[in-house]
Structures are given as C-alpha cells and as structure tokens.
C-alpha cells in the first residue's frame, strides 16, 4: 500500500492530491503551489467556490477538471456571494432535516483582482453578514490571466502592461491596497497572510481559517514567474525573500490580536527581492531607496500593532 502521508519531523502531509495533476498553470506557478498546499490543508470535506481567474481557467477546461472536491465557478466578482449561498443552503437544509448533519467547510478562492478590485463589495457583504466561510485570496499582484494588467494589489514601482514603466512613469504609481487591513476592519475572527515558501505556516493558517467560527480571510502571496518576470525555478526563493525583506510579512490577526509569525532580527535589503524580477528591472537606486523606506514604514506600523496586542 502506498503511504497516506509524508512525514516532516512531527508533521504529516497527506499524499492525496485534491487538485489533480494535469492542470494548465504556467511552469513554476507559485499560485498552483499555494493552491495545492491549501487543498491538502482543507482535505475532503469542503465545497469550494472559485472566482474567474488563473485558478479557474487552469483547472477546468471542459470536459476536464482538476478538482477532486466539489467546486463551483460562476463569475468573477460574486464568489463571496456564491459561497454565502452555499453556506446558508447547507445550514438551512440541515436545520430542516433535508440533509444529514455534517461539517463541510465552505471556502471561496479568488485572485487579487477578484478580491481587492471587482469582488470587494460582495466580499465585504459576506463578511458583514457573518457567514461561516474561509476566503482565500491568491495574490499574484496583477491581472495575470488576462496578460499582466495592474490591479490595486500591484506594488508601487512594478511595471505591468497597463501601468508600464516608461520615461514618465515608474510603473505602478500607487501603493498596494492593504486588503488584509480591510478584511480585519470587518472584525472577523481570523485574518492571516501566508506564502507557499512557508509551506507548514500556510497549511496551518488555511486549516485554522476553515475551522474558525465565522468568516476568515487568508491572503496568500503567490509568486508568478510569468508576470513578475523571473526564472521559473526561483518561485520558492522569491517567496522567501518577500518575507525576509519585510515587503510581505507573515502575520495573523486573531480576534483583533496581531501576531508576527516570522520576525527576523534584521530584514534583508529590499533590493535582493526586487533585483530578481523583471517587473522591477527599470528601477533606479533612488527609487529602490524609496521602496525601502515604504517597506520600513509599513513594517514598523505592523510591529506597533503587534506590540499593542495583548499576548
């Protein structure tokens, strides 16, 4: 018999792939990796609602599906509303004895555009109505599926096809929308950031988010070799550098309490992260310095919130 799980010290990770092989994500896709890990963390008893985007397109070309769990895609901006209906439907049918009592996790997944741009209204509504669901944003920092157009999650200084760097522009001239803070502002019980380079941390957070009573939000940085323009083998390294430089800190907000999950004594210079990626290739030393200041500012703000949170 084949092993049911792979052992990493004390940790067991199931060998079962809930996201089947044969999907059409780009070579070296960080989002595919994050999704694969998230699915392992969620397990079998789940219903997933998926927004239009890379994940949906790469996993469901008729008549094929990569999904080994029940999955529904309808549109781009309504995923939080669809999962609201799934959750309310299951609850009511159970209450009315029309289906057996069973714990099924309701999970919505979407990209950064589907979350922080076009889907933010439906998401805010679903948070506010207190549905019991986990929303996972797979953030690859632009509209990758349509060809790398900027979104509100694109970081300052990155070049995209609709905010290209040029003689008169640095590329993205706005700061990345803080979707995590927006989720947290709904006073939901669990909010977290994750990155597939930190595999166990990601799986732990997804599991936690699925199990918490009430809405939960997990924001996963998903390195994208195609849109960020780096060599495909660097996906895991880029994710590590995002955390080690502090541009994407790993933290949790549990019932309002902030906690950093990785807090290196000294952050690496942001240049180490930027220089590996074609989307930042145009930046001058001065501009990199400006980005460094922004990272420092944001990190200091976060640390203040952590310090202000009772242990």
């Amino acid at each position: 018999m084949k092993a049911q799980a792979v052992k990493f010290g004390e940790k067991l990770v199931p060998t079962k792939e809930f996201l089947a092989e044969g999907h059409s994500f780009c070579i070296g896709c960080g989002e595919a990796l994050a999704l694969r890990l998230a699915c392992k963390a969620l397990g079998k008893d789940v219903i997933i609602a998926n927004a239009t985007g890379c994940i949906e397109i790469c996993t469901s070309p008729l008549p094929f599906t990569s999904w080994r769990v029940p999955w529904i895609h309808t549109l781009f901006e309504n995923t939080a509303a669809v999962i609201s209906g799934v959750e309310a439907g299951l609850k009511t049918l159970t209450k009315k004895n029309k289906r057996p009592v069973r714990d099924i996790k309701c999970v919505a997944i979407a990209g950064d555009g589907g979350t922080s741009d076009i889907g933010i209204q439906a998401l805010s509504g679903a948070f506010e109505r207190n549905h019991e669901f986990l929303y996972i944003c797979f953030d690859n920092e632009a509209y990758m599926n349509t060809g790398v157009q900027r979104s509100s999650a694109t970081p300052y200084g990155a070049s995209t096809t609709t905010a290209p760097a040029g003689k008169f522009s640095i590329g993205q001239i706005t700061r990345k929308k803080n979707m995590v803070a927006i989720a947290a502002a709904h006073d939901i019980p669990y909010v977290a950031t994750a990155c597939p380079s930190y595999r166990f941390d990601l799986m732990k957070k997804v599991r936690k988010g699925a199990e918490v009573k009430g809405p939960a939000y997990v924001h996963i940085l998903s390195p994208c070799p195609t849109g960020w323009r780096y060599s495909t083998e660097l996906t895991v390294k880029i994710g590590q550098l995002a955390v080690q430089t502090g541009i994407f800190p790993l933290y949790e907000i549990e019932n309002g309490r902030y906690r950093l999950n990785a807090d290196p004594p000294k952050l690496k210079p942001i240049e180490e992260y930027l220089k590996l990626q074609g989307r930042y290739r145009h930046l001058t030393g001065e501009q990199i310095e400006r980005i460094q200041e922004m990272v420092n500012e944001d990190y200091a703000k976060l640390k203040k919130k952590v310090a202000a949170s009772p242990m």
Binding site: A20, G22, S24, I27, F64, T65
Partner: peptide, 22 residues
C-alpha cells in the same frame, strides 16, 4: 454528450492530460 449545465462528474479527470510535453 454534455451533462445538464455542463457539470463534470468525473472528479480530477484532468489527470489524463499530459503536461510533460511543455
């Protein structure tokens, strides 16, 4: 040959697809 609403009943049948040729 299509199911009602184009539903796919064979879970994970994408594993028939070869991606090694990329």
């Amino acid at each position: 040959d299509l199911e009602v609403g184009n539903i796919i009943k064979e879970a994970g049948n994408a594993s028939f697809r070869e991606t090694g040729d990329w």
